[in-house]
């Protein structure tokens, strides 16, 4: 298949969560979330209660994909950073290690400069976590949990 499967284990999830928890405080942001390039939400921190994070994840990934398409047409490798400015809130989108997307939503309690600074640091940490995760997923390949799924299990899912 074209791209390896994304697998998230408990240990790495806690590492990722620690980075986003720290970032939301250090950047004084409203919300921070991490999604994979296919639009799946991986982790979130901050005031996520009011937000439809699933939709946000999918649209952000679409946005990154479209921008990546434009970059290709311009023979650029990638536009790794995007910033959208609104009246009340702003959104900073950073591609991390070509695999995941780091999104920071913030208002006027902080500044773009501070957000960029903190994002830079967090990106480096996230890059190494996801790098290690990719290696781990590759080597452990499929876990037993899925090999044990029977055709009956799958059928049962659709029997209602």
């Amino acid at each position: 298949m074209a791209s390896p499967q994304m697998v998230m284990y408990e240990r790495e999830f806690h590492q990722v969560q620690a980075v986003v928890d720290h970032l939301v405080r250090a950047a004084n942001a409203q919300v921070v979330f991490i999604i994979d390039k296919n639009g799946q939400l991986i982790a979130a921190a901050g005031e996520t209660g009011q937000l439809d994070t699933t939709s946000l994840a999918s649209l952000t990934a679409g946005n990154i994909a479209a921008t990546g398409g434009i970059a290709k047409l311009l023979r650029e490798n990638e536009f790794s950073t995007q910033f959208h400015e609104g009246e009340r809130s702003n959104i900073h989108i950073q591609l991390v290690g070509k695999r995941v997307i780091l999104v920071v939503i913030f208002d006027n309690k902080t500044s773009l400069g501070l957000v960029r600074l903190r994002v830079k640091k967090a990106s480096e940490q996230l890059d190494s976590i996801f790098e290690a995760l990719a290696v781990k997923a590759e080597t452990s390949h499929q876990s037993g949990a899925f090999a044990e799924i029977t055709d009956d299990d799958i059928d049962k899912l659709f029997n209602d």
């Binding site: 298949m1 074209a2 791209s3 390896p4 499967q5 994304m6 697998v7 998230m8 284990y9 408990e10 999830f13 994979d36 296919n38 799946q40 991986i42 876990s143 899925f146």
Partner: peptide, 8 residues
């Protein structure tokens, strides 16, 4: 590319 989250 499916995404499997063992934690959640």
């Amino acid at each position: 590319m499916s995404f499997i989250n063992y934690l959640s």
